[in-house]
């Protein structure tokens, strides 16, 4: 399916968010997720199925002031 991952169009098989993260090498990474603008808690990733056109944001700790 085609989803928007961090603003870029990507073809991922999913079907869950957890599996999509594994496909992009972030299965074990320290990241937080938001699906279509809403926070998606880590424990919900395995039970959340992606669909065509979804927008997934995957963020990590970064420098800040």
């Amino acid at each position: 399916m085609k989803i928007t991952l961090n603003g870029e169009s990507r073809e991922l098989t999913g079907p869950t968010v957890q599996e999509a993260l594994a496909q992009i090498g972030l299965a074990e990474a320290k990241v937080a997720t938001a699906l279509n603008g809403a926070f998606l808690p880590a424990p919900a990733r395995a039970a959340t199925t992606l669909k065509d056109g979804d927008a997934l944001e995957v963020v990590a700790p970064m420098q800040g002031g």
Binding site: N6, L26, A29, V58, V59, A60, P61, G64
Partner: peptide, 9 residues
């Protein structure tokens, strides 16, 4: 802060 994961996080 939090930013899109591009490998540095």
């Amino acid at each position: 802060s939090l930013r899109r994961e591009g490998g540095a996080g």
